[in-house]
Protein backbone atom coordinates (compact mmCIF):
# COMPACT_ATOMS: atom_id res chain seq x y z
CA UNK A 1 0.00 0.00 0.00
CA UNK A 2 1.00 3.53 -0.69
CA UNK A 3 2.23 5.21 2.49
CA UNK A 4 0.23 8.35 1.78
CA UNK A 5 -2.82 6.14 1.88
CA UNK A 6 -5.79 5.96 -0.47
CA UNK A 7 -6.98 9.38 0.73
CA UNK A 8 -4.48 11.25 -1.49
CA UNK A 9 -5.75 10.36 -4.93
CA UNK A 10 -5.15 13.05 -7.61
CA UNK A 11 -8.89 13.74 -7.68
CA UNK A 12 -9.02 14.49 -3.97
CA UNK A 13 -5.87 16.61 -4.15
CA UNK A 14 -7.46 18.58 -6.99
CA UNK A 15 -10.61 19.13 -4.95
CA UNK A 16 -8.53 20.35 -2.01
CA UNK A 17 -6.74 22.87 -4.23
CA UNK A 18 -10.06 24.21 -5.51
CA UNK A 19 -11.45 24.49 -2.00
CA UNK A 20 -8.32 26.27 -0.84
CA UNK A 21 -8.54 28.77 -3.70
CA UNK A 22 -12.21 29.45 -2.96
CA UNK A 23 -11.42 29.90 0.74
CA UNK A 24 -8.63 32.33 -0.11
CA UNK A 25 -10.99 34.27 -2.33
CA UNK A 26 -13.70 34.25 0.35
CA UNK A 27 -11.38 35.60 3.06
CA UNK A 28 -9.63 38.05 0.73
CA UNK A 29 -12.90 39.45 -0.59
CA UNK A 30 -14.43 39.85 2.89
CA UNK A 31 -11.40 41.58 4.36
CA UNK A 32 -10.06 43.74 1.57
CA UNK A 33 -12.34 44.04 -1.45
CA UNK A 34 -14.66 46.85 -2.40
CA UNK A 35 -18.08 45.17 -2.54
CA UNK A 36 -18.87 47.20 -5.64
CA UNK A 37 -16.26 45.32 -7.65
CA UNK A 38 -15.68 41.98 -6.01
CA UNK A 39 -17.78 39.70 -3.84
CA UNK A 40 -16.90 36.56 -1.88
CA UNK A 41 -17.90 33.28 -3.59
CA UNK A 42 -20.56 32.59 -0.94
CA UNK A 43 -22.50 35.60 -2.16
CA UNK A 44 -22.17 34.50 -5.77
CA UNK A 45 -23.59 31.11 -4.80
CA UNK A 46 -26.48 32.84 -3.07
CA UNK A 47 -27.15 34.80 -6.26
CA UNK A 48 -27.30 31.62 -8.34
CA UNK A 49 -30.97 30.69 -7.74
CA UNK A 50 -32.15 34.11 -8.81
CA UNK A 51 -29.88 34.05 -11.88
CA UNK A 52 -31.09 30.61 -12.87
CA UNK A 53 -34.78 31.54 -12.50
CA UNK A 54 -34.69 34.91 -14.22
CA UNK A 55 -36.31 34.22 -17.62
CA UNK A 56 -34.26 36.96 -19.29
CA UNK A 57 -31.00 35.44 -18.14
CA UNK A 58 -32.12 31.92 -19.00
CA UNK A 59 -32.92 33.19 -22.45
CA UNK A 60 -29.47 34.78 -22.65
CA UNK A 61 -27.85 31.46 -21.75
CA UNK A 62 -29.94 29.75 -24.42
CA UNK A 63 -28.91 32.27 -27.03
CA UNK A 64 -25.22 31.97 -26.18
CA UNK A 65 -25.33 28.17 -26.19
CA UNK A 66 -27.13 28.27 -29.54
CA UNK A 67 -24.53 30.66 -30.99
CA UNK A 68 -21.63 28.63 -29.64
CA UNK A 69 -22.95 25.30 -30.90
CA UNK A 70 -23.81 26.65 -34.36
CA UNK A 71 -20.42 28.29 -34.75
CA UNK A 72 -18.73 25.15 -33.43
CA UNK A 73 -20.46 22.75 -35.81
CA UNK A 74 -19.73 25.04 -38.75
CA UNK A 75 -16.10 25.46 -37.69
CA UNK A 76 -15.59 21.70 -37.32
CA UNK A 77 -17.16 20.81 -40.65
CA UNK A 78 -15.45 23.56 -42.64
CA UNK A 79 -12.18 23.21 -40.72
CA UNK A 80 -12.05 19.50 -41.39
CA UNK A 81 -12.85 19.91 -45.10
CA UNK A 82 -10.23 22.64 -45.53
CA UNK A 83 -7.72 20.78 -43.36
CA UNK A 84 -8.06 17.65 -45.48
CA UNK A 85 -7.91 19.53 -48.76
CA UNK A 86 -4.80 21.39 -47.68
CA UNK A 87 -3.08 18.61 -45.76
CA UNK A 88 -3.49 15.74 -48.21
CA UNK A 89 -1.82 17.53 -51.08
CA UNK A 90 1.82 18.59 -51.02
CA UNK A 91 1.21 21.57 -53.29
CA UNK A 92 -1.64 23.14 -51.34
CA UNK A 93 0.17 22.42 -48.10
CA UNK A 94 3.12 24.49 -49.25
CA UNK A 95 1.10 27.24 -50.87
CA UNK A 96 -1.97 27.64 -48.67
CA UNK A 97 -1.00 26.47 -45.20
CA UNK A 98 1.31 29.46 -44.55
CA UNK A 99 -1.57 31.81 -45.36
CA UNK A 100 -3.81 29.98 -42.92
CA UNK A 101 -1.15 30.11 -40.22
CA UNK A 102 -0.76 33.83 -40.81
CA UNK A 103 -4.50 34.40 -40.41
CA UNK A 104 -4.53 32.19 -37.32
CA UNK A 105 -1.78 34.25 -35.73
CA UNK A 106 -3.52 37.57 -36.36
CA UNK A 107 -5.48 38.76 -33.28
CA UNK A 108 -9.00 38.81 -34.61
CA UNK A 109 -10.36 41.14 -31.93
CA UNK A 110 -9.05 44.01 -34.06
CA UNK A 111 -11.47 43.20 -36.89
CA UNK A 112 -14.49 42.55 -34.67
CA UNK A 113 -16.09 45.87 -35.74
CA UNK A 114 -16.02 44.59 -39.34
CA UNK A 115 -17.99 41.53 -38.31
CA UNK A 116 -20.60 43.72 -36.62
CA UNK A 117 -20.81 45.92 -39.71
CA UNK A 118 -21.32 42.98 -42.02
CA UNK A 119 -23.53 40.78 -39.84
CA UNK A 120 -25.39 43.27 -37.65
CA UNK A 121 -25.75 43.19 -33.89
CA UNK A 122 -27.80 39.98 -33.77
CA UNK A 123 -26.65 36.38 -33.31
CA UNK A 124 -25.24 36.17 -36.86
CA UNK A 125 -22.24 38.35 -35.99
CA UNK A 126 -21.51 36.30 -32.86
CA UNK A 127 -21.74 33.04 -34.78
CA UNK A 128 -19.48 34.40 -37.51
CA UNK A 129 -16.94 35.67 -34.99
CA UNK A 130 -17.00 32.41 -33.02
CA UNK A 131 -16.64 30.47 -36.28
CA UNK A 132 -13.65 32.52 -37.38
CA UNK A 133 -11.99 31.77 -34.05
CA UNK A 134 -12.80 28.08 -34.02
CA UNK A 135 -11.99 27.09 -37.58
CA UNK A 136 -8.24 27.70 -37.39
CA UNK A 137 -7.31 25.28 -34.62
CA UNK A 138 -9.43 22.63 -36.37
CA UNK A 139 -7.67 23.18 -39.73
CA UNK A 140 -4.22 23.19 -38.20
CA UNK A 141 -4.72 20.02 -36.17
CA UNK A 142 -6.33 18.18 -39.10
CA UNK A 143 -3.38 19.12 -41.32
CA UNK A 144 -0.97 17.93 -38.63
CA UNK A 145 -3.05 14.79 -38.20
CA UNK A 146 -2.89 13.69 -41.84
CA UNK A 147 0.72 14.72 -42.13
CA UNK A 148 2.30 12.09 -39.91
CA UNK A 149 0.53 9.20 -41.61
CA UNK A 150 3.09 6.54 -42.53
CA UNK A 151 3.32 6.35 -46.35
CA UNK A 152 3.91 2.60 -46.07
CA UNK A 153 0.35 2.16 -44.78
CA UNK A 154 -0.97 3.77 -47.96
CA UNK A 155 1.33 1.65 -50.11
CA UNK A 156 0.14 -1.50 -48.36
CA UNK A 157 -3.50 -0.52 -48.85
CA UNK A 158 -2.96 0.25 -52.53
CA UNK A 159 -1.18 -3.05 -53.05
CA UNK A 160 -4.27 -4.80 -51.71
CA UNK A 161 -6.51 -2.90 -54.13
CA UNK A 162 -7.97 -0.22 -51.85
CA UNK A 163 -9.98 2.47 -53.62
CA UNK A 164 -9.45 6.16 -52.82
CA UNK A 165 -12.65 6.20 -50.81
CA UNK A 166 -11.61 3.11 -48.84
CA UNK A 167 -8.24 4.70 -48.18
CA UNK A 168 -10.00 7.77 -46.82
CA UNK A 169 -12.53 6.02 -44.61
CA UNK A 170 -10.37 3.18 -43.30
CA UNK A 171 -6.94 4.82 -43.07
CA UNK A 172 -6.82 8.59 -43.26
CA UNK A 173 -9.91 9.18 -41.16
CA UNK A 174 -9.14 6.79 -38.28
CA UNK A 175 -5.53 7.95 -38.32
CA UNK A 176 -6.41 11.58 -37.80
CA UNK A 177 -9.16 11.00 -35.21
CA UNK A 178 -6.97 11.64 -32.15
CA UNK A 179 -5.63 14.95 -33.46
CA UNK A 180 -9.06 15.80 -34.83
CA UNK A 181 -10.49 15.61 -31.31
CA UNK A 182 -7.68 17.75 -29.97
CA UNK A 183 -8.64 20.23 -32.67
CA UNK A 184 -12.29 20.03 -31.63
CA UNK A 185 -11.39 20.83 -28.02
CA UNK A 186 -9.19 23.75 -28.99
CA UNK A 187 -11.84 24.87 -31.46
CA UNK A 188 -14.55 24.76 -28.80
CA UNK A 189 -12.54 26.98 -26.46
CA UNK A 190 -11.82 29.39 -29.29
CA UNK A 191 -15.48 29.51 -30.40
CA UNK A 192 -16.57 30.31 -26.86
CA UNK A 193 -14.04 33.12 -26.69
CA UNK A 194 -15.13 34.52 -30.05
CA UNK A 195 -18.83 34.46 -29.23
CA UNK A 196 -18.37 36.07 -25.82
CA UNK A 197 -16.04 38.75 -27.15
CA UNK A 198 -18.64 39.66 -29.75
CA UNK A 199 -21.40 39.70 -27.15
CA UNK A 200 -19.36 41.90 -24.84
CA UNK A 201 -18.56 44.30 -27.64
CA UNK A 202 -22.03 44.95 -28.88
CA UNK A 203 -25.23 43.12 -28.20
CA UNK A 204 -28.58 43.19 -26.52
CA UNK A 205 -28.70 39.53 -25.56
CA UNK A 206 -26.58 36.57 -24.56
CA UNK A 207 -24.36 35.88 -21.58
CA UNK A 208 -21.81 38.44 -22.70
CA UNK A 209 -24.40 41.18 -22.65
CA UNK A 210 -25.41 40.33 -19.07
CA UNK A 211 -21.87 40.02 -17.76
CA UNK A 212 -21.26 43.52 -19.04
CA UNK A 213 -24.55 44.74 -17.61
CA UNK A 214 -23.76 43.26 -14.17
CA UNK A 215 -20.24 44.64 -14.21
CA UNK A 216 -21.40 48.10 -15.17
CA UNK A 217 -24.22 48.11 -12.65
CA UNK A 218 -21.87 47.08 -9.83
CA UNK A 219 -23.51 43.80 -8.88
CA UNK A 220 -20.61 41.39 -8.55
CA UNK A 221 -22.65 38.53 -6.99
CA UNK A 222 -24.77 38.32 -10.14
CA UNK A 223 -21.69 38.69 -12.32
CA UNK A 224 -19.81 35.87 -10.63
CA UNK A 225 -22.87 33.64 -10.50
CA UNK A 226 -23.28 34.06 -14.25
CA UNK A 227 -19.58 33.44 -14.83
CA UNK A 228 -19.81 30.22 -12.87
CA UNK A 229 -22.72 29.15 -15.08
CA UNK A 230 -20.59 29.96 -18.11
CA UNK A 231 -17.63 28.03 -16.72
CA UNK A 232 -19.91 25.04 -16.12
CA UNK A 233 -21.09 25.17 -19.74
CA UNK A 234 -17.49 25.31 -20.96
CA UNK A 235 -16.49 22.35 -18.81
CA UNK A 236 -19.49 20.31 -19.95
CA UNK A 237 -18.76 21.00 -23.65
CA UNK A 238 -15.10 20.17 -23.15
CA UNK A 239 -15.89 16.94 -21.33
CA UNK A 240 -18.30 16.04 -24.12
CA UNK A 241 -15.43 16.31 -26.62
CA UNK A 242 -13.15 14.28 -24.37
CA UNK A 243 -15.68 11.50 -23.93
CA UNK A 244 -16.18 11.27 -27.68
CA UNK A 245 -12.40 11.24 -28.09
CA UNK A 246 -11.96 8.36 -25.67
CA UNK A 247 -14.70 6.38 -27.39
CA UNK A 248 -13.20 6.79 -30.84
CA UNK A 249 -9.53 6.32 -30.05
CA UNK A 250 -9.53 3.34 -27.72
CA UNK A 251 -6.75 1.76 -29.75
CA UNK A 252 -4.46 4.64 -28.82
CA UNK A 253 -4.21 3.52 -25.23
CA UNK A 254 -4.80 -0.16 -25.99
Amino acid sequence: MNRKGPLMSPGIARLLVIIALLALWEVGARLYADPLFLCPPSQAVRALPHILTDPKILNAIRITVYEVLTAFVMAVICGMAIGLAVGLNGFTKQSILPVILLLYATPQATILPLFILSFGIGPAAKIAFGFSHGIFPVIVTVVAGVQNLKPSLLTAAKSMGASRWQIFTTIIFPHMIPSFFTGMRLGMTAVLLGVLLAELYVSTAGIGFFTRLFAESFSPPDLFALISVLATIAVVLNEGCRTAERRFSRWHTA
Binding site: S152, L153, A156, S159, I171, I177, W251, H252
Partner: peptide
Protein backbone atom coordinates in the same frame (compact mmCIF):
# COMPACT_ATOMS: atom_id res chain seq x y z
CA UNK B 1 0.11 -10.09 -52.19
CA UNK B 2 2.84 -8.26 -50.32
CA UNK B 3 4.63 -8.70 -47.03
CA UNK B 4 6.63 -5.61 -46.17
CA UNK B 5 9.63 -5.24 -43.93
CA UNK B 6 8.01 -2.38 -42.11
CA UNK B 7 5.01 -2.99 -39.95
CA UNK B 8 2.12 -1.93 -42.17
CA UNK B 9 -0.68 -3.18 -39.93
CA UNK B 10 -3.34 -0.62 -39.15
CA UNK B 11 -2.85 0.25 -35.47
CA UNK B 12 -6.52 1.13 -34.89
Amino acid sequence: AYVFQENTLFPW
